[in-house]
Design a protein around this nucleic acid. Sequence first.
DNA 1: CGGACCCTTGATAGAACTCAATTCATGTGG
DNA 2: CCACATGAATTGAGTTCTATCAAGGGTCCG
Lengths: 222, 222
Amino acid sequence: MLTQSAHTAQTARTYFPQLSVEPRLSESAETLSSHAAGCEIFAQGEPVRKMYRLENGVVRICRFLQDGRRHISAFHFPGDVFGLEAEDCHSVSAEAITPVRVAGFRTTNVVPMRGRDDQVTGDMWRVALRSLTQSQEHLLLLGRRNALERVASFIVEMAERQDSARLVELAMPRVDIADYLGLTLETISRMLTQLKDMGLIRLRSSRRIELLDLEALEDMIY
Amino acid sequence: MLTQSAHTAQTARTYFPQLSVEPRLSESAETLSSHAAGCEIFAQGEPVRKMYRLENGVVRICRFLQDGRRHISAFHFPGDVFGLEAEDCHSVSAEAITPVRVAGFRTTNVVPMRGRDDQVTGDMWRVALRSLTQSQEHLLLLGRRNALERVASFIVEMAERQDSARLVELAMPRVDIADYLGLTLETISRMLTQLKDMGLIRLRSSRRIELLDLEALEDMIY
DNA sequence: CGGACCCTTGATAGAACTCAATTCATGTGG
DNA sequence: CCACATGAATTGAGTTCTATCAAGGGTCCG
């Protein structure tokens, strides 16, 4: 009865929307701070004070279950905006993977979250919508893709994010990739060697992946 | 090094944010249309023309992979707003599960998606942020929860959505629940009987669940 | 009464996890 | 400069969880 007819029309070139935003937004920055690798920028449960634009480095956004299970909902790269929340308290933590520099904005200046009929700048709107698109995509990945497809998808995503033609630098360890893809670090490792054995990638080092057949990788994720 | 200290502070009573919106928004409705159960309201790949407020019935939002795998990213209930997209074309389909009535708005009236520095109404902003929160929650579920926890979570979500104290009416078949939770319909069925055997629920009929121990269900999902 | 769905249950298979051992890379100090 | 310690990544063996395949039972409706 239901067809999926039209959906081939929607052939965008990039599969993963960028979350970066015009530097213009940086002008309203109030603070500029640095964090060492491994540090928290904000923590789950803390009151929301600011939003951030990442100037430098790589950040992970994570949530914890009480028994210690962790899930990473996003990685952020320079230019990305993060820290947007619906509630007063952060529902996630943001942690620096590498040393980072972030610009902070008082949310109330940019995003009047509480008052009714308040207006929101176009930039923030774009950030929110892109995050939403990104989440939808990731939902599909976690819900209906197998381990190999997830890892292939991850590599393509990382490649697009750092628009490197052939060489992808991973800033994060395998555990982080695992927690992002809903797998274990061992499975990540196995899938990478499988992709290697299939001739789609080459592992120049554990954090450096050479793309040998991008098209084949993209075919795996449609 | 990293603590998850603060996150117990964030003890909201509801785990699943409502996506419904003040009826006020309905006033700007342009069209009011009805669809039979099983019909598409809009399809993946179609150009975005409108946003919708569900007046009546239940809707599922789905995405398809080319090989037919389906994922349901959300269910919507009366009052919910859906159809918000970052791009020109729908990245998802919306299908009526029951007979539905929806109010449609020209997106350009409510949400000026394209122009820069455009402003957005507070209502739309709230809808977007809540969808985002909702997605984050679901991401965690798909990434790090097992089958039993997912089904428990689903029951609690449905209970909150129709704020019924003890009796939950499911509008959707098992397949839909499965595609929402990233499982198979058989697993849904098994987990339901398991919850029944644990004494947490009772199955009055296949679409009608009585909550015997809501607290225990909530404990399963923290 | 018969047929179409939908749901449940069982048996089996397969994918990913867990646990454990090994290798590799990096950095430190003798 | 090399030995060694440390943390990260890979690999292997065995287990667990969920999917798959198949059969049977309910319920609604013509």
